[in-house]
């Protein structure tokens, strides 16, 4: 997980990536942010369970367990530290999502909800200067975490295909390259 995590995070421009300053902003405001926890958990899973496609990911009666998972993630995030094990955990989530059939549209959509929720609360409840720092930190966190989850999802798909069918990522890239120009031409027409 360490190698893939580093490779993914290296793809993000440094001015966009989650920084120590972002970490400081979240941690110094964690008491207030933790007050929003129940609303975050409730709103997140209300959205997920009010949509047929996302609801279909879950088994009957699973919601409380998944709410606890999100709660644990939120608390661990606000308590820090943002060390290797934290980011590797996010990469691991991409692998879990393959198993659970949580696709990347669902992830990016729901992360948009989280960012909007936390940003709105920050703008409502903090002085503007601190609120803007919080909004920036939340969006940088979103950038890192979604990058790790969706790239891990994709890269681990490639790994599984290689293990199952002997087609490594370079070869898959070559196969894609043989078709992509035709696909682009067809998409334009």
């Amino acid at each position: 997980m360490n190698e893939i995590t580093t490779k993914i995070l290296d793809q993000i421009p440094s001015n966009v990536k989650f920084s120590e300053e972002d970490a400081d902003v979240l941690i110094r405001n964690k008491d207030k942010l933790l007050e929003w926890e129940d609303g975050l958990i409730q709103g997140f899973y209300d959205s997920v369970f009010n949509h047929d496609t996302t609801r279909a990911v879950f088994t009957e009666g699973e919601r409380p367990a998944r709410e606890q998972t999100l709660r644990d993630w939120y608390q661990r995030t606000l308590n820090g530290p943002f060390d290797d094990s934290y980011w590797e955990w996010q990469t691991y989530v991409g692998l879990v999502h393959i198993k659970r059939k949580v696709n990347n549209a669902m992830v990016t959509g729901m992360w948009g909800w989280i960012a909007t929720y936390l940003s709105s609360k920050a703008l409502e409840e903090f002085p503007q200067d601190e609120a803007l720092k919080l909004v920036k930190a939340v969006h940088a966190l979103q950038a890192n975490v979604t990058a790790l989850i969706v790239e891990s999802y994709l890269k681990n798909m490639f790994v599984a295909i290689d293990k199952a069918a002997g087609l490594n990522e370079a070869l898959l890239g070559r196969l894609v390259a043989t078709e992509i120009d035709d696909m682009l031409a067809n998409a334009k027409s």
């Binding site: 069918a165 196969l175 043989t178």
Partner: peptide, 14 residues
């Protein structure tokens, strides 16, 4: 290019 890619793929799959 296509034969190289699918040939290598067939070999890997084989």
């Amino acid at each position: 290019a296509r034969i190289a890619a699918v040939g290598a793929a067939a070999s890997g799959l084989g």
